[in-house]
Design a protein around this nucleic acid. Structure first.
Lengths: 349, 349
DNA sequence: ATAGTAAATGCGAACGTTCGCATAAACTGA
DNA sequence: TCAGTTTATGCGAACGTTCGCATTTACTAT
């Protein structure tokens, strides 16, 4: 490991004061062309790289953005957040920022982690994802007036810059899709009460069904954790309803529940897609490889990550957030055989 | 945003010099109990947190580890690396280190990124993954004598600390599994020539087949990128072989190719699992939800990430790597219906 | 020519630590 | 009791920058 090249050495080589070199490098001052020439040459010859540490000690900025996310259980990896990460990187890198990732254990410890990162001056801002109502982190960062952007919104009085996917709209699209295929008895596999994301999404179901003038039978709303198991058992319940209210279409709030639903349908001697239409949410990589391939809602994750990062950096450098301060984007319905019963065009062989 | 609390303020409050406070905090010195008491009280009262930046400027260490990985294409997310990341975080956090992630574009730019991170003093070490032969990053870091550990090995003279999964052993396990099910004509969907990982894995195929005294028909070795499409088309070729050499078992080097293989088998009017046994590699989350569920090789990613990180930090703090310097770990064969034709015990409903 | 302004560069200080050495105080043992 | 040793604390410097102000030099306009 070679020794570090400092400003002073560059200055000596270029026969100017080291402070002048600093100014030239940061383009803080106009200087005679010859001197500038000399300085850049010296920088290049010596292969000088500014010390990040010294720079941020002096300027009190770390050029680093903190990010944490819910680790998904090993057997249930979250490809969406993987993509989200990548998109943020690619955006941050171009502007000369780095991402500092740290793990997310229980809610109590996470606040300490934020505090430490802020107090020790390691990060200039945060990105949050998987925002829920009453998320203490949001409250904390707002209180501290520390810069951040969020992937996900929150009900309530707090105002902060976010981008979120309009889950209600997404579900509405799925319901309308089934309606257009002449389904009338449509059930939903929803999340437990009082989840912000879940509430948004189910609202879309109510609204779409209402618009179509369909009365929702209470049994059609099944709630539970978004697991395969719940999807399976809830669907079994639905299929055991008496014939005149037994659903012919099932909307699941994520792909995993939809997969469970399809298994339940098959085990009941029915064909998912043909006899009962199923849709998921997230369009996980698995969706297209299922039998039948799963109709699902895809979120524009890449754009969201890039946008969030761009806005955050814009704020850090200019002091104001670009508009829109809050934004809701629409997911895209990817139609496959699990809802139509027909192989989709251009899909896998 | 409140102003930063510094050592000097703590010192004043505790009526000692600020350097003494520093020493107490870092446990560099013994001091009278009363003074120590006062100092800790002041630290707590003022809610003092050392400035990370100042600290690392002075001590020339950043307590930060750099990590980069190949961004997987959006439609083909890599849940394995997601898990790998998490395991490293959880290990690093406990020791007070952070992970700085940065994206991985083309090979040329990545070297510049390493250089910048090193020269600007932002990281103390790196973790590499997806190591290939002749990886220029490894060469570079070895040349610079900059600390790093790798997930993956390399053929050649370079010595560096790594952990790798024994892919050859994994494939051997899969082949032996099929042999034990009385398959004799076993084909392999392999990667293009001259991929280190691919070469290791196919070696296991050759070796297992040899040990069983089976002569490998050249057509049984199909090569191509590890995509669904290649898996599909290669399997179509295999199925069109004349009956006496048409394989009854197919080993794929990743799950995606195995999925393509199963689709090809089904489209040929055969049943994967029953008529033709198929195995994959990686045990992606998708594997268990396929029809039939896919037999696959699972890598102990979590342990690997933790181990690598522990060893790296150990090195940073003590100056020597704990043994073993190089380690090969075995994957685990997860047996499901795609190879046996029978529903596995304890699997999904 | 001469004050007045603009442009080019230098200088000292500061950011908040850690580190080694110096010093003062207290304690040992004959 | 006094040199010798240990223990507790303080002090100055350094890490490599950036920043604002001071200074010098050159240039304009009367």
């Amino acid at each position: 490991m070679k020794r570090r090249v400092t400003l002073k050495e560059v200055a000596e080589q270029a026969s100017v004061s080291y402070q002048t070199v600093s100014k030239v490098i940061n383009q803080k001052v106009r200087i005679s062309p010859e001197a500038e020439q000399r300085i850049w040459k010296a920088v290049k010859d010596l292969d000088y790289t500014p010390s990040y540490t010294a720079r941020s000690l002096r300027s009190q900025r770390s050029q680093t953005i903190g990010y944490t996310w819910q680790p998904s259980p090993p057997d249930q990896a979250n490809p969406i957040l993987d993509l989200f990460l990548q998109s943020m990187f690619s955006s941050a890198e171009q502007k000369g920022y780095y991402l500092l990732c740290f793990p997310h254990r229980n809610q109590k410890k996470i606040l300490d982690a934020y505090r430490l990162l802020i107090d020790s001056g390691r990060v200039d801002a945060f990105v949050l994802s998987s925002v829920e109502n009453d998320d203490p982190c949001i409250q904390f960062l707002c209180d501290q007036n520390f810069p951040f952007v969020a992937f996900g919104r929150q009900d309530g009085d707090l105002h902060f810059p976010y981008i979120d996917v309009d889950g209600g709209l997404g579900i509405k699209m799925a319901v309308n899709h089934l309606l257009s295929l002449s389904h009338r008895k449509i059930a939903i596999l929803a999340w437990p009460l009082n989840s912000r994301v879940g509430d948004n999404r189910i609202e879309g179901y109510f609204s779409a069904m209402n618009s179509a003038g369909i009365e929702i039978h209470p049994e059609w709303v099944q709630r539970g954790e978004g697991t395969y198991k719940i999807g399976y058992s809830a669907t079994m319940k639905l299929l055991s309803l008496r014939e005149n209210i037994r659903p012919t279409g099932i909307i699941a709030m994520n792909d995993l529940m939809a997969i469970g639903a399809m298994a339940a349908i098959r085990h009941s001697g029915l064909l998912p897609g043909k006899d009962i239409a199923v849709t998921g949410f997230d369009d996980t990589p698995t969706a297209r490889y299922l039998r039948p391939p799963l109709t699902s809602l895809r979120q524009p994750i890449w754009d969201i990550g890039q946008n969030l990062m761009d806005r955050l950096i814009e704020f850090l450098e200019s002091g104001t957030y670009p508009l829109p301060f809050e934004e809701l984007v629409a997911p895209q319905l990817i139609i496959r055989e699990s809802s139509t019963g027909l192989p989709a065009q251009g899909e896998l062989l």
